[in-house]
Simulated scan of single mutants.
Amino acid sequence: MQALDSKTPIQLPDHTQLPCEDGTFVKNFQEHPQSILLTESIWGKLQEIHPDRQFCIGQDSGIYWRITEPPQKGAEAPDWFYVPNVSPTLEGKIRRSYVLWQELVAPLIAIEFVSGNGAEERDKTPYQGKFWVYEKAIRIPFYGIYEEKKASLEMYHLIAGKYQLMFPNERGHYVIEGMGVELGIWQGIYKNMDLPWLRWWDFQGNLILTGEERADGEKRRADGEKQRADEEKLRADEEKLRADGEKLRAERLAAKLRELGVELE
């Protein structure tokens, strides 16, 4: 390697030069739908927060925080993370990874989906453990550890440079300041799987729906309105039939009385 003199500028690698994958498999069939669910449901809320569209979301994407050899050792790849106030692209290119020495803005929240016993996600080994890196190096304000097998969510908030365990509110949710939402666990069917899912709620406790869920809800409401309209029409038709029957019986009675010489006023 050629020696560099003191006047030679140091050229740090950017997101186009660093590896964007490490060849590992996704741990289970819930991980990708879970990431998609988090992204789809929060998208509208983030567009409200960022009318300029300056934000990005990473799913299994690398966050490079130091230069190492091989490069992947200087990166962590949260299952899901959100970064406010950055461009969705970088210099007109889609990001291959998130490189802190290019961006300078840390993610606001990172979430890991536990596939083993959670030791990896709670590892505080300096310069190696995920917990240590998120707390001390990247300094992500909110860190979540989600264990689907236990249907449990462990949330940490970075206070004075140290992660403090958060406590849920009366709804069992965790308030995520800066996003205007609460994060918690919802049991239900998503993508044909009835599982406990990580979901977002607003501060009033209303579940934030995906576009598909909103469309399904609108269809159910429209179907319900149509059914109610059909039932009202059926009742009206039945009332008309009864009224017509009463009128016919009255006319027949009047005709019979006239045959008997009884005139009706």
Results as ranks from 00 to 15, higher is better:
residue 72 Q to C: 04
residue 126 P to S: 11
residue 12 L to Y: 15
residue 31 E to H: 15
residue 93 K to F: 01
residue 250 A to I: 01
residue 106 A to K: 09
residue 14 D to N: 15
residue 219 K to A: 13
residue 262 V to H: 01
residue 127 Y to Q: 10
residue 211 G to I: 08
residue 30 Q to S: 14
residue 14 D to R: 03
residue 32 H to G: 09
residue 40 E to I: 09
residue 64 Y to E: 08
residue 34 Q to V: 05
residue 19 P to R: 02
residue 148 E to T: 06
residue 180 G to D: 02
residue 147 E to T: 11
residue 251 E to P: 00
residue 243 A to E: 12
residue 32 H to N: 14
residue 179 M to L: 15
residue 85 N to W: 07
residue 87 S to C: 11
residue 105 V to R: 13
residue 29 F to V: 11
residue 211 G to C: 06
residue 177 E to V: 07
residue 244 D to S: 08
residue 47 Q to K: 15
residue 117 N to A: 10
residue 35 S to Y: 00
residue 105 V to C: 10
residue 230 D to T: 03
residue 19 P to H: 03
residue 173 H to A: 04
residue 190 Y to W: 10
residue 22 D to T: 13
residue 32 H to M: 14
residue 113 F to V: 06
residue 220 R to K: 14
residue 6 S to R: 09
residue 50 H to M: 10
residue 79 D to I: 07
residue 48 E to I: 11
residue 106 A to P: 03
residue 173 H to K: 03
residue 58 G to K: 04
residue 244 D to M: 10
residue 155 M to E: 08
residue 25 F to L: 11
residue 38 L to T: 06
residue 20 C to T: 06
residue 172 G to L: 06
residue 156 Y to M: 09
residue 81 F to A: 02
residue 4 L to W: 13
residue 83 V to I: 15
residue 166 M to R: 10
residue 62 G to L: 12
residue 203 F to Y: 09
residue 47 Q to E: 15
residue 48 E to N: 07
residue 196 P to E: 02
residue 73 K to L: 11
residue 164 Q to M: 12
residue 154 E to M: 14
residue 143 Y to Q: 07
residue 226 K to A: 14
residue 180 G to V: 06
residue 42 I to W: 00
residue 144 G to T: 10
residue 226 K to D: 13
residue 187 Q to Y: 11
residue 52 D to Q: 12
residue 182 E to T: 08
residue 209 L to Q: 01
residue 164 Q to D: 12
residue 40 E to V: 12
residue 55 F to W: 14
residue 56 C to V: 08
residue 23 G to W: 07
residue 119 A to R: 14
residue 151 A to V: 08
residue 128 Q to H: 12
residue 255 A to F: 03
residue 178 G to H: 08
residue 38 L to P: 03
residue 132 W to F: 15
residue 237 D to F: 00
residue 212 E to Y: 08
residue 205 G to S: 10
residue 214 R to E: 15
residue 27 K to A: 15
residue 20 C to A: 13
residue 124 K to L: 04
residue 76 E to G: 05
residue 141 P to H: 06
residue 195 L to M: 10
residue 142 F to T: 05
residue 30 Q to N: 14
residue 45 K to L: 13
residue 207 L to G: 02
residue 259 E to V: 09
residue 200 W to E: 04
residue 6 S to T: 09
residue 117 N to G: 14
residue 182 E to W: 01
residue 214 R to W: 10
residue 52 D to R: 09
residue 224 G to S: 13
residue 140 I to G: 00
residue 240 K to I: 02
residue 252 R to T: 00
residue 160 A to P: 00
residue 197 W to C: 07
residue 200 W to A: 09
residue 240 K to H: 02
residue 173 H to M: 02
residue 152 S to Q: 15
residue 93 K to T: 01
residue 228 R to Q: 11
residue 19 P to Y: 01
residue 154 E to T: 15
residue 100 L to C: 04
residue 65 W to K: 03
residue 21 E to V: 03
residue 40 E to N: 13
residue 265 E to W: 00
residue 240 K to D: 01
residue 260 L to D: 02
residue 42 I to P: 00
residue 19 P to M: 03
residue 96 R to T: 03
residue 213 E to M: 13
residue 243 A to D: 07
residue 33 P to T: 06
residue 251 E to L: 00
residue 127 Y to D: 11
residue 52 D to Y: 12
residue 179 M to C: 10
residue 226 K to Q: 14
residue 196 P to D: 02
residue 259 E to M: 09
residue 176 I to C: 05
residue 77 A to R: 01
residue 222 A to I: 01
residue 111 I to H: 07
residue 216 D to Y: 04
residue 143 Y to W: 11
residue 261 G to D: 02
residue 105 V to G: 07
residue 241 L to R: 11
residue 23 G to S: 06
residue 166 M to A: 12
